[in-house]
């Protein structure tokens, strides 16, 4: 039992990112409030970013800024660099989604997906 707990603790980043992913996924698909859907999307993205970044982490490593003559362990910089791009992408998707929500609010006067469905079906 303690074995498993220790192992999980060692891989805490992965565990947390998986929990976050599921929370985000669940929020995104089950909530009818469109803003909450977008928040869920962001949580899910963050989970993926956390996962990706933690794959590059080396225990005890520091940021790879090389000082000549100093022997050190560095973390893998590649995932960090990639995730920078990933964050930019996520931000733009979020912005676009929010813009669409504003438009939807103009058209329907609500940001509740079920309400919108109801209005559409009565039209």
């Amino acid at each position: 039992m303690t074995d498993i707990a220790l192992k999980l603790f060692d891989n805490m980043y992965y565990l947390v990112s998986m929990v976050l992913f599921i929370i985000g996924f669940h929020t995104m698909l089950t909530h009818s409030n469109l803003i909450k859907k977008v928040i869920g999307m962001n949580v899910m993205d963050t989970a993926v970013f956390l996962f990706f970044v933690s794959t590059g982490y080396v225990a005890g490593g520091v940021a790879p800024i090389i000082e000549p003559g100093v022997e050190q362990t560095y973390i893998n910089p590649l995932p960090t660099a990639l995730i920078l791009t990933g964050i930019v992408v996520a931000v733009s998707v979020t912005a676009f989604a929010l813009a669409l929500i504003v438009k939807l609010y103009h058209h329907y006067g609500t940001i509740d997906a079920e309400e919108i469905m109801r209005i559409r079906s009565t039209e």
């Binding site: 996924f25 995104m28 469109l34 859907k37 899910m44 996962f51 676009f96 989604a97 939807l104 559409r120």
Partner: peptide, 20 residues
Amino acid sequence: VEASFKYLILSAVGTGCVLL
């Protein structure tokens, strides 16, 4: 707008899965 939003959300799920 509604269709586009639906597409955006599901497509975000898709790319999220792929990135993971």
